[in-house]
Nucleic acid binder design. Structure first.
Length: 480
RNA sequence: GGCCCCAUCGUCUAGUCUGGCCUAGGACACCAGGUUUUCAUCCUGGCAACAGGGGUUCAAAUCCCCUUGGGGUCACCA
């Protein structure tokens, strides 16, 4: 299974949408393996489906990959010696292989109409048989086949699957997986449009690009025999296979849009730190040991082993992701966190004036352990950016409490009498005030919080006052 | 339904290959305490799993078989 050729792995997305969480994890494993082994990580664009490709999708996938910190050694935008890296640009390769296949007989023209195929499948299904193509056109002689194609009749090229052959896939995570060729359909290798299909092109490109290990999702396991058969027909060297377990939604089924956000871009928009998503994804179907859960890319690379990839599916646990995010946010420096927060602050429409950098840093620091996501920040700290305060339910209740108004008036008076703002040793200052006025701490602090921020949570009250400044603090405390 | 894959706390997992150190470890979540003016953080403790049944063996979470359960896949998508 292993040989000494250079390690070359690839991630091969098709540009028909955004980068999916599952795809990202696959890319991550490929990347980690390449980096660990000192090999190459190649990005190949599988754009043989003209109908659904789009440049926007490609851009978005590339951006998501970069956002996660995954860089590629060969592929779009960086080139390489095994290009082109978009399948739409490799047609010569494919057509020469197709010609060869036709000559050698492992490909044949099929003139059956889509209607006939459709009907055939329905009948077979009704009879509870495998709905495979009946190989009708395989019996056509060469002369008739060429004649009909020359006369302009539409056809596809099918792969002529051997009758009785054992196909053993040596998979790094699953061991030997056996298939029998009788279970494999004479699949379409080249469409009637002349465009080749995935299975045809995949084996060809993997060989042409000298891919040593195909690391991909388990959903590909069942069409691996088709690719192996291709390799055999062409005498190509087969790559090693590594089928990683699926990422499942909360319902235990393959993660899909129904169960939540599936695009990496969604997580970026929602303010997840990329390092946290990276970390979390690394933990799905893989583990370093029995206790390491928080780690970055360097650690992953040094610890990565194919043998540590799990074989069973993993549910995408958003609670754990949230916890990891919080952990990253807390561990971050206030400066770096501020940098990350800036786009979210701007998006919320808040202005940070020149000269306020220090202040912003302090605001961020005071919220650092309180936010779970970058996007939590603008909402939680809005009272510092906006002129008016929106009072929530609990805060309103605190303001309606007996004596609240009187307490606030008293506080204002005391604050004005102090030479420092906020009073030094605020904690003891307020505590002694509470004792002197014989008012519980809660009854003292809640109305202040309510007036200042409109909510009962947030940083320590002294810090809130410092952040707001004397003028605004007094104004808000006296608001009606 | 055919074929293929999988099976340890609710979840992610360690342990499985190379049986004994496992009265099964960690983390998330949850619950209970503690710290705290609030929120959050943090600390302590608790709950909680080898799917079932047969073998093999002195010994099985670990090896084999069956059952059950879950998933994937059956396109001129990738």
């Amino acid at each position: 299974m292993s040989d000494s050729r250079p390690i070359r792995v690839r991630f091969a997305p098709s540009p028909t949408g955004n980068l999916h969480i599952g795809g990202a994890r696959t890319a991550l494993f490929n990347w980690a393996f390449a980096r660990k082994m000192g090999g190459s990580f190649i990005l190949r664009i599988e754009d043989t489906d003209r109908e659904r490709n789009s440049q926007e999708s490609l851009d978005s996938i590339l951006n998501s990959l970069r956002w996660l910190g995954l860089d590629w050694d060969e592929g779009p935008e960086v080139g390489g010696d095994f290009g082109p890296y978009s399948q739409s640009e490799r047609s010569e390769c494919y057509s020469s292989a197709a010609t060869k296949g036709l000559e050698e007989g492992w490909l044949y023209r099929c003139f059956c109409s889509p209607e006939r195929i459709q009907k055939l499948k329905e009948e077979k299904l009704a009879a509870k048989e495998n709905p495979h193509y009946d190989r009708c056109c395989r019996a056509l002689c060469r002369e008739e086949s060429s004649l009909r194609s020359e006369s302009g009749e539409s056809f596809v090229l099918r792969f002529s699957v051997p009758d009785d052959e054992e196909i053993i896939i040596a998979d790094h995570v699953r061991g030997e997986v056996k298939f029998h060729s009788s279970q494999v359909e004479d699949w379409v290798a080249v469409r009637s449009t002349g465009m080749p299909t995935y299975n045809f092109v995949c084996a060809l490109d993997d060989a042409a690009m000298e891919i040593s290990h195909v690391i991909r999702g388990e959903e590909h396991l069942v069409n691996t025999p088709k690719q192996v058969l291709m390799s055999r027909a062409l005498g190509l060297q087969e790559p090693d296979f590594v089928h990683v377990p699926l990422i499942l939604g909360q319902d235990g089924k393959k993660l899909s849009k129904r169960t939540g956000d599936t695009a990496v871009g969604d997580y970026k928009e929602k303010g997840y730190p990329p390092e946290a998503l990276f970390n979390f994804l690394s933990l799905l179907g893989f583990s370093i040991d029995d206790e390491t859960t928080i780690f970055g890319s360097e650690k992953l690379v040094s610890a990565f082993e194919l043998s540590r990839i799990n074989s069973s599916g993993a549910i995408f646990d958003t609670d754990k992701l949230a916890w990891i995010c919080g952990d990253y946010i807390r561990a971050c420096s206030a400066e770096a966190l501020t940098e990350r927060l800036l786009p979210f602050i701007k998006r919320a429409g808040f202005q940070v004036e020149e000269g306020e950098e220090e202040w912003l840093l302090r605001v961020v620091a005071s919220y650092q352990e309180r936010i779970g996501l970058y996007s939590d920040f603008p909402e939680m700290a809005s009272w510092l950016f906006e002129g008016s305060v929106e009072v929530d339910k609990k805060a309103a209740k605190a303001l309606r409490a007996d004596g609240a108004a009187a307490v606030l008036m008293e506080i204002v008076k005391r604050l004005e009498a102090e030479s420092n703002f906020p009073p030094q040793e605020f904690d003891s200052w307020i505590k002694s005030l509470s004792e002197e006025l014989e008012i519980g701490m809660g009854n003292l602090m809640k109305p202040i919080r309510a007036r200042l921020a409109g909510t009962l949570g947030g940083p320590p009250v002294g810090e809130m006052m410092a952040l707001l400044g004397k003028e605004k603090t007094l104004a808000r405390l006296q608001a009606t």
